[in-house]
Nucleic acid binder design. Sequence first.
DNA 1: AAGTCAATGTTATATTATAACATTACTACA
DNA 2: TGTAGTAATGTTATAATATAACATTGACTT
Lengths: 176, 176
Amino acid sequence: MFKRKISSIMKKKQTSPNISKNFMDHDHELCFESALKDFKQHFIEKELKLTPLRLKVFQLLLKDHRPLGAYQILDLLRKDGFSSTPPIAYRVLDFLIEHGFVHKIKKLNAFVACSHPGNSHSPTFMICRKCEKVAEINEKESGLKFNKETSSEFKIEEAIIELIGICKNCTKIEVI
Amino acid sequence: MFKRKISSIMKKKQTSPNISKNFMDHDHELCFESALKDFKQHFIEKELKLTPLRLKVFQLLLKDHRPLGAYQILDLLRKDGFSSTPPIAYRVLDFLIEHGFVHKIKKLNAFVACSHPGNSHSPTFMICRKCEKVAEINEKESGLKFNKETSSEFKIEEAIIELIGICKNCTKIEVI
DNA sequence: AAGTCAATGTTATATTATAACATTACTACA
DNA sequence: TGTAGTAATGTTATAATATAACATTGACTT
């Protein structure tokens, strides 16, 4: 109860919505709960079946904005009493990806919870090689545009965009 | 000799330099030879050792603008009498990638010869899901730009950009 | 209760990649 | 000329990632 209040206060303190929020200190409890609520809402709207396994995997990926490999997920599932053979993880991940709740980061062969579920999109990822966190930018935010020639010569159906570098937070820390 | 002449004539027939040349009919003999010449020149300039294995792997990747997996390369090496255990391919590929002669397409876990060797760059790839050919656009050509916010909040060191879709040539063919 | 179907469980194996060490073959230079 | 050093290649084994194929479960339907 009290915790909630603090969360709420902290929320007000935060700067304006920020594309790199995931990298910075933020009220992650709130962030987590809000994402989870969204997640559940989408299951209802789309009439999908929210099973314990699907919920668990999504929660694991929501944990701290760090991507998890399939086998890391399996280890965590094992600890929670789920079966933990590879197809279990890959099937749930495939399902969550298909419905836009999770993305795969090709650079890392790992998976993250989607930050903008619902918008079917070609997200751009920023991957900090230092703290290993990932932030997702949606198309409009990224300002990403290809020039006319590219668009006219090639019909883009899917775009994989992964930016590897150093996040604002780790830059601060780097200055020692 | 005569072949050369035809090539030369065909070259003149081609339209202006085109970002999606790789997808279209073009004088591939000339394309191949020119890329190979460049490749060799870079080895001289950078004082690298051009071994038969390195040359062979690059030639294989130059063949037809289609990416090859490491194990496909190994099969082809075997046919040419080279040793063909995985480290052979991966080591040569690592070397060629490190020096900018080859890129890895993450989407396909496969490798292509670089179209703009020498420019150290973050290339953008267009991958046709129909003919499976790949074309590389360099930074300037792509017109790709991130907005200020992205750039100020995250220090980009490497960008993986892979566009999956249908090339101009396959679009034409698609209309049946 | 029997049939259906989606979800999960299980076994086996495919695909991609690397670690660790051995051999070769070229270079330098004593 | 021979030998020490080193880069490249060769070899063996195994790690890491992913999928195929089939079995079981459990909820819902009729």
